[in-house]
Amino acid sequence: MVEKIRKLKNPVVQEARELARSKNRILKNKIQLHGLEQLQWAKDAGLKIRSIFISEDESAEDYKCFSAPIYQSSDGILKKITETNYLISAVGVAEGIANRDLSEEFVLLLDDVKDHGNIGTIIRTGKAYGINDFITTNEDFDPYIPKTIDASRGTSFKVNFRRYNTPKQAVSYLKKKGYQIIATSPYGKSLQSTVALDKKPIALVVGNETSGVSDEVLKEADHIVQIPMYTGVESLNVGVATGISIYELRLKEALTMLAEKIISSLGREVNVTSQLLRSAFDIKLKEISEFSGDQVIFLMVLKRESQMNKEQIEEQFGYSGDRLAEFISPLYEQGLIKKEYEELEITKEGEELLAKLWPIHEKTENLILKDFTEEEKENLKGYLEKIQQNCIQIMKYQV
């Protein structure tokens, strides 16, 4: 349903019109979106779009994918909403992003960067290298100026911003959070590629286009580095320099903190958890059974799948060759599984054993999930299913 608006004084129009100015966007934490592309970026980023205004020449069908109310207005009203002398045929209003505390190991400090295009490029580059937190040294910093949104290709909707009144306040906050401050300067005493980083989170400072990093920040910096350049080139564009700095410092960060990163990596955590789960099930099952946790889980999978071949067993349980024979031989000997052509099936005796052992399996699972609420158990199951589905998607596209 499309509602036509003819009056500039309409409250919905007035709300949208206020957001043409940065101070109102910051004060109300709302964003004015220009064009279908920006609307789509905001939707993809999960922002709540409150309203959409389209010109009388636009087709409402092009906007049916949005759940927000759609209003059709004259070109004059649209120009008033955006405060431009040219027509933007679609304008949206979206809720801003709630600021959160820093949680990342690498953040960017924008020290009085002014150019809207540069800011968008920096945000997009930072996000491409996994940076989600941006600190600014001026309270009126606005990442939602249309030119900035376009230059960032919508990534400004997917990152976190914290504004401070002065460089001193911003640096003080970062120091308290345990960050080492890395500032770039043509007069830095160390080359960026050779600087010895501490085993601490990194805050890279990006300076003003004309004056560079402020003296307030340089005085507090843990490292002042320079990007080496051939003679004849006075300086790099701040967006280009930021990309080079992030790349080099990300590499050095990984090398410096490699041991810690390995310990906290998803692959290691999953592997350790898997080994501990197997050990826990083995201990409990061996109290009343000669079979291991893996063998009982294999019977459970076989019951559910009806049949499995050797390749499927190898893929799911990691046993092959002699180890696979050692794994399934006791199940054959006890008559718990049988072979039908090249497929294995569970027998009636196997199903009966599962029924007898199921209370032990359930009891062990409850011990493993001790102190988990029912909601946490459901959330854990959902997270694991998401991981499995994402892994399956990756496997589908392997060459």
Results as ranks from 00 to 15, higher is better:
Val2Phe: 04
Glu15Arg: 13
Glu18Ser: 09
Glu18Phe: 07
Leu19Ala: 06
Ile26Glu: 00
Leu33Ile: 04
Ala42Val: 09
Asp44Ile: 10
Leu47Met: 05
Lys48Ser: 12
Ile49Gln: 05
Ile52Pro: 00
Asp57Glu: 10
Ala60Phe: 03
Pro69Tyr: 08
Glu83Val: 07
Asn85Met: 11
Tyr86Cys: 03
Ala90Phe: 03
Gly92Ile: 04
Glu105Tyr: 02
Leu108Ala: 09
Asp112Asn: 14
Ala128Ser: 14
Gly130Met: 03
Asp133Glu: 11
Asp140Asn: 12
Asp142Tyr: 11
Ile145Pro: 01
Thr148Arg: 14
Ala151Ile: 11
Arg153Phe: 11
Val159Trp: 12
Arg162Thr: 13
Tyr164Met: 10
Ala183Asp: 00
Ile202Pro: 01
Gly207Trp: 13
Asn208Glu: 10
Asn208Leu: 15
Val213Ile: 14
Lys219Gly: 05
Glu220Gly: 07
Asp222Pro: 03
Tyr230Asn: 06
Thr231Ala: 14
Leu236Ser: 07
Leu236Thr: 08
Gly239His: 08
Ile244Glu: 00
Leu255His: 01
Arg268Asn: 07
Asn271Phe: 12
Ser274Asn: 09
Leu277Gln: 07
Arg278Val: 03
Phe291Asn: 05
Met300Ser: 10
Leu302Ser: 03
Gly321Leu: 08
Glu326Arg: 14
Ile346Tyr: 05
Glu351Ser: 10
Glu362Lys: 14
Glu362Asp: 13
Phe372Asn: 04
Tyr383Pro: 00
